[in-house]
């Protein structure tokens, strides 16, 4: 096959950490299959290409775009629209694009507080309290940088998305399976899943994949795992009072964290059918607290030091409320 006859592939990063790109490269030799079957036309982390090159491509000329990262700035939004326009299949790749992830946790704070933290932290010398401005006049003309939205959005809050691949980052074996599937589709050997499907993950919960033993959960005290001297290696962590997000989190990782001795923090996002991830966890945690006395319940809940962080670590931007009141009100 000549290079130009191969279907085109792109990958883009918006507000993200770069881990999703590493996860793709971490598929080892599978990445050669991508190269053998696709022409990579745009992938800023791996090759040099300009936005204007993409802009010049015919609409829908890219078969598959993996888009990772949340929509934090006008530049992110503009690229989301551009990649949507140029791609036949646009995939929200990884937790940031699917649900906001860690960058979305900034939605707890207003823009002013975020900028204060970043541009006036104790380690920053900024005596004039300079803040980035979308436009700055200089003798040569006007300098422009992207505008920072007060509330981070997920990809599908900005453009139409065809598929979702969850995970922070998606597990390499799951990415490989998706790559195989797309190649089979290209070769006419398989059909695409229904639009809007979550691919590269299970439908059930992390608990379902977790080998830890479960009995009856009756919790008198929540304790963060780092504060415990002894953790039973075989017993369900939640049963031991360790806040574990397994009950609401989508399966697909193989329950990696609980198997390695750590609680699930929810990086695969909500399990199928869950509308609000945090609400599902609140239900789960409140159900297992062993008390009927309001004061005692409050004392037990004190063990959950940061409920919003616990329940929405990866999911705030796609939760029903999406952002705190002050974030919504900031400009």
């Amino acid at each position: 096959m000549s290079a130009s006859a191969k279907p085109k592939f792109a990958m883009y990063w918006a507000a993200s950490c770069g881990g999703c790109e590493i996860a793709v490269l971490n598929t080892h030799e599978k990445i050669l299959d991508v190269d053998a079957n696709f022409e990579v036309v745009f992938w800023p982390v791996a090759m040099d290409a300009k936005y204007k090159d993409v802009e010049a491509m015919p609409d829908r000329s890219i078969l598959l775009t993996l888009f990772n990262g949340g929509i934090r700035t006008t530049e992110n939004a503009e690229l989301a629209h551009l990649m949507r326009q140029k791609s036949q299949i646009l995939v929200a790749f990884g937790s940031c694009a699917c649900e906001g992830c860690i960058p979305g946790l900034a939605n707890l704070s207003n823009k002013q507080a975020l900028f204060d933290t970043v541009y006036n932290s104790p380690s920053t010398t900024n005596s004039q309290e300079t803040r980035p401005q979308p436009e700055t006049a200089v003798p040569e003309g006007t300098l422009k940088i992207p505008y920072f939205y007060p509330v981070l959005k997920t990809l599908d809050q900005v453009v139409d998305v065809d598929y979702y691949i969850p995970g922070c980052p998606p597990e390499s074996h799951q990415i490989s399976a998706v790559i195989d599937l797309v190649i089979q589709v290209v070769q006419g050997k398989a059909l695409l899943p229904a639009k809007g499907a979550t691919i590269g993950a299970g439908e059930s919960t992390v608990c379902d994949e977790c080998p830890r033993q479960r009995n009856i959960k009756a919790i008198k005290k929540f304790t963060r795992i780092q504060e415990l001297k002894v953790v039973d290696p075989a017993l369900c962590l939640l049963e031991q009072g360790i806040p574990c997000n397994g009950p609401a989190t989508r399966s697909g990782c193989g329950a990696l964290c609980p198997q390695a001795g750590a609680q699930c923090i929810g990086c695969y996002g909500p399990a199928a059918g869950v509308i609000d991830y945090g609400a599902r966890l609140m239900t789960a945690f409140a159900s297992v607290i062993d008390s009927t006395d309001p004061q005692e319940i409050d004392a037990i809940l004190d063990g959950l030091v940061d409920p919003a962080g616990q329940f929405y670590r990866f999911n705030l931007a796609s939760s029903l409320l999406r952002a705190s009141r002050s974030a919504w009100k900031s400009q």
């Binding site: 707890l108 945090g278 609140m282 239900t283 945690f285 409140a286 159900s287 607290i289 008390s291 009927t292 309001p294 319940i297 409050d298 809940l301 959950l304 940061d306 409920p307 919003a308 329940f311 409320l321 705190s324 009141r325 002050s326 974030a327």
Partner: peptide, 21 residues
């Protein structure tokens, strides 16, 4: 005992909502 579950959810929700402003 289900009203106690409602009580616990209520107390937990209040804490989470407070963090959302």
């Amino acid at each position: 005992e289900q009203n106690y579950k409602a009580l616990r959810r209520f107390q937990l929700l209040r804490r989470t909502l407070a963090q959302m402003g």
